[in-house]
Design a protein around this nucleic acid. Structure first.
Lengths: 215, 215
DNA sequence: TAGATTGTTAATCGATTAACAATC
DNA sequence: TAGATTGTTAATCGATTAACAATC
């Protein structure tokens, strides 16, 4: 069934929402019941108007003079991000980055729960990393479909990332979180989010290089 | 000494440059000497005009009809990103994510070389992770200044990230690569790039949630 | 020459910021 | 009531996309 009017939340807004959540949660037990956007803006070095616009996407209305109800705001942001719940996920590629994610306790509070890892290396298959079993890649398709897994995490080398992605998509995965430094093709209806470190480092080293040239 | 006109490269462009590099490098040994932006655009599902504009920031000119010299283009992109070289870096926080980065061989090809890790946990100090020594956090300031370290990688828990960042900045670090899920304050002249996973996951889970609500 | 491709200038689009009215 | 804050409408800014001239 379709909603009347599903407003698409801009990517920059989605990326800022976790910041608001962090500030609200770390206000401490003595936090006030109401919070103004000016407070959030100051903590995060943002424009108060931008904060207000971002928060409007959560559907929660503030009150002139007093601001937003702190508890309500936390819940509204969590609900918008889907962080009031989590989706089970399969991780493919039990290398360094894969292992780091398997041990990343907070992932569940970010809406994702890794239930198993997959690898094709016989040395890794059957082992347990941070309490999660590493299974044979050949078992992925079957299990993902049977367990209704909707999120796939790709931490394999670039050369095999597309093949792994295709397998995940075939198996019914609806969102891919990619760490391989390569472009992936997915059908339109599949959500693809890249956490590729090379993109992030490119911004850092590129700016560093620009500064050096300028000196 | 100042350059005549240092054009600031937009963030989206910097983020796309590694993609071009990957495609060019993986064209194989039989790659053609010339490459057209239409080829790159097709491989990465981008607009050819956008590719052309991005490449112009590298300062390399293409030739009508034939395109860009492949070798020259690779070098021009690398030079723009500072990937023809690397900066030595200190990593602070030898946890899961820290260990993953210490073992990430390719980092050097992305312009960054981790020379040592720091932690305050006595159990970790003195150990070696992926061939890199873990030193006492108390030694960081002195060493960073003496070794002219310009890049700091923050993989500590959010609660201590600001303190670690302040220490790095005091010690002469010019760029911070942050993995802690918290906002960091740095002086204007210090480059701050966040690789915070919660921001990336927010986009993924937020869109997944929107799709579900829409159904 | 004809045609493919680059580079430039203008138009569009999306997001941020500014101005201001509404409200408690 | 006065003042602080929200929410809305308009203006600005930056990046993308379109149109087209230049060139080999």
């Amino acid at each position: 069934m379709e909603e009347t009017k599903t407003q698409v939340i801009p990517r920059p807004t989605l990326q800022r929402l976790p910041g608001y959540l962090t500030v609200l949660r770390t206000m401490g037990p003595a936090r006030s019941e109401q919070v103004a956007c000016t407070y959030l803006a100051e903590k995060l070095k943002l424009d108060p108007v931008q904060v207000r616009k971002d928060l409007q996407y959560t559907g929660l209305a503030g009150r002139p003079r007093t601001g937003y109800d702190t508890e309500e705001l936390i819940h509204a942001i969590e609900a918008t991000l889907g962080w009031d719940n989590f989706s089970d996920a399969f991780l493919v590629g039990a290398g360094n980055m894969g292992a780091a994610l398997l041990g990343h306790e907070q992932l569940r509070s970010y809406g994702v729960n890794i239930v198993a890892a997959f690898d094709s290396d016989p040395e890794k298959i059957g082992t347990t990393i941070h309490g999660k079993k590493v299974l044979a890649l050949s078992k992925l398709g079957n299990l993902a479909a049977r367990m209704h897994i909707h999120v796939g995490i790709v931490t394999v080398p670039a050369a095999v990332a597309q093949a792994v992605t295709d397998l995940l998509v075939e198996s019914g995965v609806k969102a891919i979180w990619n760490f391989a430094p390569t472009h992936l093709n997915v059908p339109d209806e599949v959500i693809l989010e890249s956490a590729d470190l090379s993109r992030s480092l490119a911004v850092l080293t590129g700016r560093l290089t620009a500064v050096r040239k300028h000196e």
